[in-house]
Design a protein around this nucleic acid. Structure first.
Lengths: 231, 231
DNA sequence: TTATAATAAGTAAAAAATTATCGATATACA
DNA sequence: TGTATATCGATAATTTTTTACTTATTATAA
């Protein structure tokens, strides 16, 4: 029921925290010092009670009639997520998606630093992408060991996913951010976070399909009804 | 309670459907004709009852002692998601992530076809990325209108997100797959599917942090305890 | 100093999602 | 032909998540 820092927060809450963080950083940049749950809820189209509950799970407390300190909130969320100190990670599979993630500035803002990339294609070894060196797979074990890397971003083709994971496990990786559609097989204690884009596309597709069957598309355009939900 | 095709399925179920689909396609490729919920659950580390419930929401029925027809299941899931006929979409913002998504073969497998990309940078206009033409923003309205495009993949920088969305709405777009961390403001009836990667990273970070506080990391490696959950 | 209004926080209720239980059915095998 | 067993489907129980409601606190202004 209690946690080392803040209370227990469940998955949907944790997923919303970065959204709050983004809004709060914007407010901070604009010089705002305090913010109410009501305001946040309005901006994010959420329920004010839910906002308060989410925020309270990070351990922060607000003042009645005043709201929350923007800076304090940001700190609380960041420390709750472990985003206040940099974590190093590697990335495997420098294809389309892998290359994009290497260049994705968002990571640094969230204090995940990709220190090296790997690819099975010998052509890619020795090159740099977005300033990150790409190594051949043979160097994986050594480098992971030497730098004490724990986290790996996995962006290899589906066919190779499990094979690569076996190498990762042998090298000592304990957390995998899995962008492949494969259900990875790992021993207990190894964290796998699945981030298959197909899931989001499925939800979008279904909602589009529902909207269309509700009011079939005609030659002219239309834009009413339906609903805008969060994932 | 009932739907035009299949029963109502809630978000978590819909998110799992592509995972089933991936497994089923693999089985189909291997020549397997029938599969049981028990087997699927085992492979995907899910509960067999949940698998049956998920599948039943697509309208398919299985046979006791036999299981489900692999091909029938694939068809059912695809048609439930609207993935049996191609939908055309555009993409806006040809940065790192946008370029990657343009080249992401996964889309075609899911019958979402990106027919054109747009970018505010005039340098990029006229080029091609992954075989897709990149146009300047001025051509947006005309092209969307002419091709009756409804769906847009949004991969622009956060600062420009809402501005671009306003253009999209004016052009007649009714569904946005939003890869920015911005809470978009759209009128009722327009579908926004948020796909911020920060949410997944937050869950991963928190799980790593939890695992570390549970058994603090020492100089040597370790890999026990914890749990491997789906998002 | 007191009244008022905005807001947080705690408690309770409702809804959604997951997991468990049980009966029915179809195949395999004696 | 009859029996055993794997599997589905439906119902129920549990847990999680969201929403609603009530109480308490604090700044503001009369």
């Amino acid at each position: 029921m209690s946690d080392s820092l803040g209370k227990v927060a469940k998955l949907p809450t944790i997923r919303r925290l970065p959204v709050y963080l983004h809004l709060l950083r914007g407010l901070q940049g604009g010089g705002t010092e305090r913010v109410s749950s009501t305001y946040i809820a309005e901006q994010l189209k959420l329920d004010a009670v839910q906002v308060r509950k989410d925020l309270s799970s990070t351990g922060i407390v607000g003042k009645p009639r005043v709201g929350f300190e923007v800076t304090g909130l940001i700190d609380a969320i960041e420390s709750f997520l472990g985003w206040n100190n940099t974590t190093e990670a590697i990335l495997i599979g420098v294809g389309n998606l892998g290359s994009a993630l290497l260049g994705y500035a968002g990571f640094m803002r969230h204090n995940l630093s990709v220190v090296a990339a790997f690819d099975a294609d010998p052509q890619k070894a020795g090159t740099e992408i977005a300033g990150k060196p790409v190594f051949p797979m043979e160097k994986l074990a050594n480098l992971v060991h030497r730098l004490h890397i724990r986290i790996c971003i996995l962006t290899v083709p589906a066919q190779q996913a499990q094979g690569v994971v076996n190498l990762l496990l042998a090298a000592g990786i304990t957390a995998i951010w899995n962008f492949t559609p494969v259900a990875l097989h790992v021993p207990a204690g190894v964290i796998v976070q699945n981030e298959d884009l197909a899931g989001g596309l499925a939800v979008l597709s279904r909602r589009v399909r529902d909207a269309e069957t509700a009011h079939p598309p005609r030659a002219d355009e239309s834009a009413e009804g339906g609903d805008d939900a969060h994932h």
